[in-house]
Every structure is written in structure tokens, then in C-alpha cells.
Design a binder for these strands. Sequence first.
DNA 1: ATAGGTTGTCGAAGCGCTTCGACTCGACTG
DNA 2: CAGTCGAGTCGAAGCGCTTCGACAACCTAT
Lengths: 337, 337
Amino acid sequence: MVTLAEVAQHAGVSASTVSYVLSGKRSISVSTRQRVERSIHELGYHPNAGARALASNRSNIIALMVPLRTDMYVPVMMEIAIAVATSARTHGYDVLLLTGEEGADAVRRVTGSGLADAMIMMDVELDDERLPLLRGTDQPSVLIGLPADTEGLTCVDLDFGATGALCVEHLAMLGHRDIAVIGEAPAVYERHTGFAERTLDGLRSRSRELGLRVLHRPCEGGYDAMSLTLSRIFDERPATTGFVVQNESAVEPLLALLRQQGRAVPEDVSVVAICPEQVATQASVRLTSVAIPAQEMGRTAVERLVAKLGGQGEDDVVLIAPELTVRASTGPAPAAP
Amino acid sequence: MVTLAEVAQHAGVSASTVSYVLSGKRSISVSTRQRVERSIHELGYHPNAGARALASNRSNIIALMVPLRTDMYVPVMMEIAIAVATSARTHGYDVLLLTGEEGADAVRRVTGSGLADAMIMMDVELDDERLPLLRGTDQPSVLIGLPADTEGLTCVDLDFGATGALCVEHLAMLGHRDIAVIGEAPAVYERHTGFAERTLDGLRSRSRELGLRVLHRPCEGGYDAMSLTLSRIFDERPATTGFVVQNESAVEPLLALLRQQGRAVPEDVSVVAICPEQVATQASVRLTSVAIPAQEMGRTAVERLVAKLGGQGEDDVVLIAPELTVRASTGPAPAAP
DNA sequence: ATAGGTTGTCGAAGCGCTTCGACTCGACTG
DNA sequence: CAGTCGAGTCGAAGCGCTTCGACAACCTAT
């Protein structure tokens, strides 16, 4: 293993000079710099991470806590994780992958040991047990998701309130008056991750302004659950012509069931989904949808964190504006019979 | 930040004694151990990761390289990644998340800097550019996936050859004679990740032994591609009654199209899928399938790696035996008309 | 009683890097 | 021309930990 000292000797300078070439914290003459850089290259030198962390008190590692529940929003999570890893690298950081399993202990361990310089937490619950720890430490952190109390925290999330509003605006504009919302599984509401409630709040208050009738039903994914939910919806509100779907795994069942009942999309009923682009474009009907901007969320979180590490960022909440893409699943409401 | 020395002082012993309490590498009297442990607890001490890595030359970190392509097998990848992170923790390791983006450079960087003690590589291609590096370093590594030449490498993967064979055996046993294989997207075959070819090889050779006719067609997922592929299959082999599907995103389209054509599953045609459990159980027909054992793969990879780090493991290939679960999508072949 | 082991503890020497103060040398100022 | 300044470089002091050799203190076997 090549060390700084060997590079220094090879280049005929002192170790500290090599260090300054690497960090750029003091000026170095062009000739020296080039000589050192050539030695580094020739010897294939890589600074030892441990030594560097010890001496500088910074590890250049960002910890990323992902939820353990692998049964939900998995593609979105993965996309965020990869976006975090990729952007972190462009800022000179590596990413340590923590699962939610350890919970608050993981936070203590990582901050206590100096393993990571900062932390990104995904899938934050409204009243998360890890939040007091984050507030109590001087280690920078960014949440992806929105807890109940954001005081002293930096959060990044899609503006789910605006997302809900946007969906019903689109349907209202097309003349739909009776809207059904296929929500996430009841478990999601019970866990209070918040985003589902926020969507609903935004959607309801905009509907009220627009004079729409809204029926909300949580729904586990899959055909059986969807079938039951759908028949109940039409029992209760036969005039329903617009659907907003937030549960990815209910999308395809919904489309299949509507087809089966002889209701054409978008001629008879319109469907707006809140889901990743990929789901929207690969469904059996190309879906009008509000995308979940996973990449942007990951990238933004890293940028915020790096700013804080540089002493510049301040605590605040970044809500990403939703964008609705019109595809083939929405159209004008049918004329009343 | 609490240091070893502070713990030592608090407990009234020397620093080295505290270190030996922590590592257990020398015997310590019960009374001293208890005193030290109490001090550690009271002060909330966590060993500094950088200092430890520097002094011991081991970081207790495992690097995990995931593919950058976020468009494929994503849920499986995520499940593996989480299984790796979780198992690694039970062995005292943390996981560093690397994306494929940096390619071979990432391998050099991580091994060169001592950032990680070992490495797990997912989505290995048949002739991967990173393999020479892995062979050339003394850093232990495990691949998830199977390259062309496994000499000097440790690999973990599902036995895709046996998987293909198992699928056709099941169909043959039910009396099906004409089998169509809906393969992965052409891009997968072109990238030579290997698993798709191995499935096909195993499937073909077993079919030959069983006297089955096999028609293989690669297929991008989605409805349009599937529709085209399906009509070509029935044009060429009208007697087809058995399907093996390896492309997750073709599963639902296939079922929908068959339904639409009036072919009942499993009365008229049988479908076997190679996919994660979740896809099999959530599809519109509960699918007879061979599961991709993501958790087991991740766990096994970590166990292998930890064994190698302990100087015990040897290089070899671990092929996980496939298991076929019979559900509602396969049944006896219809009597010939 | 004495040589030889064990057991438990300590001190000190690093691990490879960053960073501070100090030093040299040439260029500029008044 | 002396004094001042900035640019460029070096030496040395740690960062917090592990680990080796040393050394008491005690036990066992002769």
C-alpha cells in the first residue's frame, strides 16, 4: 500500500507538501505540483481513508437510512438511493447504507463514531423517534419526507398537498364532478408517514373550492382488494367519472376491472395516477400522472446536505412542485345521460 | 466526543486495558471488565471509526456495488441490497453503497484507500471489466451473478439453468407439449449478464430430454411489445399451451392479452413465471412461479465474504437451488381438439 | 523453597494523514 | 537600501486507536 510519505520521497518533497497539493489549502508552485501529481499517478497512490478521517475529523461519508419495509414504494426508494449515491460522489462523498432496523441506535452509533459526516433519512414518520437525536446533534442531516414538526430540521419532499390539488384541478377542468380517490393501504395511514394525508388534504380543499364531490377509500393493492373497493365506490356514487390513484399496486387492477365492467378509459371514466413515470408509461393505458421525482429528491437532499457541511445551508423545508403529465387515461367527462 | 483515554481515566485503568475489554483479545479480570463497561455506558462512548481503521488496518465496512441501470429488476436489487446491509450488521460490518457508474475506478479507489475491507458486486456481466481487478487484489470479494470465467472468484446466484429446467418439467408433467418462452428484453441478452442465457440453456436441454417443443422470444415489457410477440407466437405455433415468462414487466400484459383473446388461464394455457414472490402473488392470476430468492442471495453473499475475511472461505460458486411454487396459473394441458 | 507458568495490566510505539508555526527567498515599497 | 510582505516549503505535533513487549503478582510443580 502506497503512503503519502512514499509519494513525497518519490517527488523529492516533504509529506506536508504532498498533503497541500492534495487539499489545495496552501499555494504550491506549478513545478512542484506537477512533480507531485506525476508521482501520485506513477505510484498509484490513494490516500488512506482512516488516516484522513482521523487527522481531519471528517470521513467524507454520508449515511443514508432507508426504510426496512421492502414491500412498499420500492422502486422509488431505490431510485432515490441511487440518486443520492451518484450525487454524493460528485461532491466527493461516499454513501453508507443503513437500514431502518437499528432505528435510533444507528443514529447514535454513526454520529458517535464519526463514521459519517452527515445523514439523510428516508421515510420519516410524522413523530419519528430519531428526530430528537437529529436535533440534539451538531451533525448535519436532511430528511426525505416531512415530519409533523419541522422545527430545526431540513426536509425535502414532493409537495403532496399541491399534488392532490393538481390532480383534481385537471379532472375538474375536463368536466368531472364526482371524484373517487383510491388511497394507499390503510397501514400507510396508520403509520403516519404523512404524505398520504397531505395529498388528501390538498385534494379535498381544492375540491371544495371547485365544487367537486370526493370519495376517498384506502386500498391495499391487488385485484381482490381493488375489486371490492371499486364496487363499493360505484354503489355509493354511481356518477363517479374521475379517479385519482395513489397506490401503485392498485393501478393495474383498477384499469383491468374498469375494462371488465365495460367502462372505457378515458371515454367513460378518467384516471389520474400519482406514481413513478415508469409505472405511468408501462401501464395498459398510458396514464395521466403526477410523477414522483425520485432523482430530484435524492439530488436535492445531497445538495442541501453538502451546503450545510460547508456551513452555508439553513434549516428549511424544500417542497418540490408537482408536475402533471397528460397521457391517455384522462379525457372530457361524458355528457350526463 | 468521548475518547478511549477518557473512558480509561473514568474507570481508573490504562487505555490499552479498555481496548482489550472492547476487543476481547486478552483476558481481563471480571471486576475490571465490569468497571470499564460501566464507564463506557455512562460516558456514552463510541470508538472512533477512523482511528480504529488506521490502527487496525480494517474498516469493518463492506462495499456493495449496485448496477446503475435503475430500470431493471429494481425490486430484486433493492431486496438484495437491504438483505446485504442487514446481514452485514449482524456480523459487525457496515455497508458502503457504490453505483456502477464509476466502474473499475470505484474498485481501485475503495481498495486503494482502505475504505472497505471487502466487496460485493451485483449484476456482473459475463466478461466484466472489473474482474481482473478483483483477481489482482488481495481484498476479498463476492459476486452476485455469474461471469463467464469464475476462476479465482466467489460467486452466488440462483441456479438459473435448473430454474429453466424446473419450469418445463412442471409443464411437461401437466401434459403440455408446446412451450413458449417469453424472455427478457433483447438488451439483456446483448449485455450478456448471463442469467437469461443460462435459463434458456437449462430449459432447452431439459425440453429436449422430455420431448417438448420450445419457442423462445425475447420481449421488452409492456402491452404493445407483448401483444406483437404473442400474436407471432400463436402464428408460428398455434398449439402452444404452456408459457414460461422471465420478464417481470411482461407478466401482466401477457395475462391481460390471453384473457382478451378468450384463452383462459389455467384451463386453456398455463403460465409459469420466474419472478419475485411479490409479483407472483399480486398478479391478476396467482402465478405458479420460481421465486428469485433475493434475501437468500444477499445473506449468502455476506456470509461468504465474512468467512473469507476470517480466512476461512475458499473460492467457489454457490448456486441456490430453485423452488417452484404451484399456484393458480398452471393446470393440465387441454385435450387435443 | 525455587524455577517456571499464568493471568492481568500497563506503557509506548506506531498507523498515515492534516495542519500549525516557522523558515527561506525573492519582490516590492518608501 | 533597509524593511516588509507574500509565496512556497518544511518539520513536528498530534488525531484516537491497536498491539507488542514488559512486568508484577500469583499459582503450581518439583
